[in-house]
Write a protein that binds this DNA or RNA. Structure first.
Lengths: 202, 202
DNA sequence: ATTGATAACTTAACAGCGTTAAGTTGCGTG
DNA sequence: CACGCAACTTAACGCTGTTAAGTTATCAAT
């Protein structure tokens, strides 16, 4: 009967409630500054209940990041369809990536800046799934630019990694050195992307 | 007599012993995974002794980072004297920065990647001292390029931060994503610097 | 209808953390 | 010899992530 199915649904619902509460706290106050007890308090369960749904605190964060980065991949796909011109598409994709990082600094920190090694188990697969997928989008845009001969360089991976490095550099610098007197964010982002494209065009 | 001076010297010596022990542990196992008690054990003092020399754990980390910044600044100065041409100087400086990071990945991680925010307010900016000095060297090179009108852009800080971001991006990506199928390190570094300079030249 | 299993959830506790208040020791000066 | 001060330690507080054991409710089978 539908009993088992209903229980399964309820289980999944609580799992989602935990993730939503945890995400809100993590994003607001940072992963390290949020305790399991605070998450539990927020959802009005005992702290140990969380351990019935997630192996430990890190696994909880991983699950949240999976969700968030699925969103990023989707957003990149959307940008891919929007722009017909490959250069424009590349630029918009990079911009989306950077702005995503700035909007979700804690998720970005976890997955791209400090990858904490999970002491046990099969290890951290996010990079191989969501992260790789995101890189695939970037690579496709670059490949289009090279195919249309608007870029001088021909090594698709080198150029892709150049864009990733620059985008990552801007993003992580703005995130981790909040107090540094940076110029306006948008100015720095625009200058970065424009300079790269200008320098690559033949 | 020289008593006070000797005591001062001894105090400074123990302070340095603490910093050396802490740095070694931090670099080996990461800031979060090293407790004050473990540092104390290593130097064979009680944990509270450390608090006679450093306000708290983060202050200890900050002091260590100051030292690292100082080393980097010195190396940048050396490279600065070598090259007369401003573009060449800028390139060599960036290269030195990146190679410093790749050669001391754990120090780099500690000072530029993992550096957490100090909760005791905004008066703590590491960037105002040693980090600023390093940034100053970069800025001077960029300023020379702009003064000699080899660069199109005129905002010295924006361009400086562009180079910092790109250099940091390459460095941190190579350090933290060791298993990713990057192209050859030198290829990526060269492409990055050449593309930036090409894109900025008028 | 009673029993028994099973799943969901809680209580209590452990070991360790950063940090502080209070206490102890040893030494140079009066 | 006694005082004061500096260096250092002991003991404790209130946290933390996590686990073992215990409770409760619900469904299946006798």
């Amino acid at each position: 009967m539908g009993l088992k199915a209903r229980r399964e649904r309820e289980r999944e619902a609580l799992r989602q409630v935990i993730m939503d509460a945890a995400r809100e706290l993590f994003v607001e106050e940072g992963f390290e500054n949020v305790s399991m007890r605070r998450i539990a308090e927020k959802i009005e369960y005992s702290p140990t209940t969380i351990y019935l749904y997630f192996e430990d605190k890190l696994s909880l964060l991983y699950a949240i990041c999976q969700e968030t980065f699925a969103k990023l991949a989707k957003r990149l796909e959307a940008h891919e369809r929007e722009a017909a011109d490959p250069v424009d598409r590349l630029k918009k994709g990079c911009r989306a990536y950077i702005e995503f990082g700035l909007k979700h600094p804690n998720h970005y920190k976890l997955t791209f800046i400090t990858l904490p090694q999970h002491p046990k188990g099969p290890g951290w697969k996010l990079e191989e799934s969501m992260g790789m997928k995101a890189y695939g989008h970037l690579r496709a845009s670059v490949e289009a630019c090279i195919a249309q001969k608007v870029f001088r360089a021909t090594d698709v991976d080198a150029v892709s990694q150049l864009f990733w490095a620059a985008g990552h550099g801007v993003t992580s610098l703005l995130i981790t050195h909040k107090h540094f007197p940076f110029v306006a964010k948008n100015q720095l982002i625009d200058l970065t992307l424009d300079t790269l494209i200008e320098g690559l065009q033949q």
